[in-house]
């Protein structure tokens, strides 16, 4: 299990408008592509260098591929990263202000303190 890699996916997709759109429209394909091509990128480093060991487990991959932000919360993905990206994905469908943000919180209502640990 790698909270770090979940966070790295959320972080890298969120900062790239093209990836945001691909993740909205074809999440499973985007997750597969990203894991194969980007997961081992060493950020802020020379191109051509890469890590060799980073991969999702099946639960993590499925949570990302199904836009399952509740499962991501349970797995300890950083809530700020998840929220920010998912607002980018789905706020545009709002029919009233903050509709998505409120429903996002409501879907997490079954969690009580302490929340899943987010330390990486």
């Amino acid at each position: 299990m790698s909270k770090y890699l979940l966070n790295k996916f959320l972080f890298m997709v969120d900062r790239d408008p093209e990836l945001v759109e691909r993740y909205r429209s074809e999440p499973r394909e985007l997750v597969s592509w990203w894991e194969a091509e980007c997961a081992n990128t060493v950020l802020n480093c020379h191109t051509g260098e890469a890590s060799t060991w980073l991969r999702f487990d099946d639960v993590e991959r499925e949570a990302l591929a199904t836009h399952d932000h509740v499962k991501l919360f349970e797995l300890g993905a950083h809530p700020f990263l998840t929220l920010t990206l998912f607002i980018a994905l789905f706020e545009r469908d709002n029919t009233e202000p903050l509709e998505y943000q409120k429903s996002y919180g409501a879907r997490l209502a079954h969690f009580s303190m302490p929340y899943p640990d987010i330390a990486t």
Binding site: H69, F73, H78, P79, F80, L81, T82, L83, L98, Q101, K102, Y104, G105, A106, L108, A109, H110, F111, Y115
Partner: peptide, 10 residues
Amino acid sequence: LELGGPRQFG
């Protein structure tokens, strides 16, 4: 402050 949790945007 709650961000990305059940108590956000109250």
